[in-house]
């Protein structure tokens, strides 16, 4: 197992298992887990618009997470 730190921002805060907040929280995942696996574990529906940054770098869903990494998930916003 690996432990990562996740944080959910803006409209996605509602999926924080510790209550609606953007405070980071720890998640345990099997080794080799991807961002997609993390989203599933957090019950974030596939239809929800989102993008993920791992250690401040945007990554795609098939990115394999490593022990201790920080994952921030934001909704895309594009209005003017």
């Amino acid at each position: 197992m690996i432990t990562i730190e996740a944080a959910l921002f803006a409209t996605l805060r509602t999926y924080n298992p510790n209550g609606e907040s953007s405070e980071p929280f720890r998640v345990q995942l099997p080794e080799g887990s991807t961002i997609e696996n993390l989203l599933k574990k957090l019950n974030i529906p596939p239809g929800e618009s989102k993008q993920a940054f791992v250690n401040n770098r945007r990554q795609e869903w098939d990115y394999i997470l490593q022990e201790g990494e920080r994952v921030a998930i934001f909704p895309p916003i594009a209005g003017g």
């Binding site: 803006a10 409209t11 618009s49 989102k50 945007r58 795609e60 895309p76 594009a78 209005g79």
Partner: peptide
């Protein structure tokens, strides 16, 4: 390119389409 994920030309996917914009954030 570093901000938006998998941008596809012509496809808009910001959450504002659903949630709108008030007076203050702009």
């Amino acid at each position: 390119n570093a901000i938006y994920r998998s941008f596809e030309k012509g496809k808009d996917n910001g959450i504002e389409k659903e949630l709108g914009n008030p007076a203050t954030t702009p």
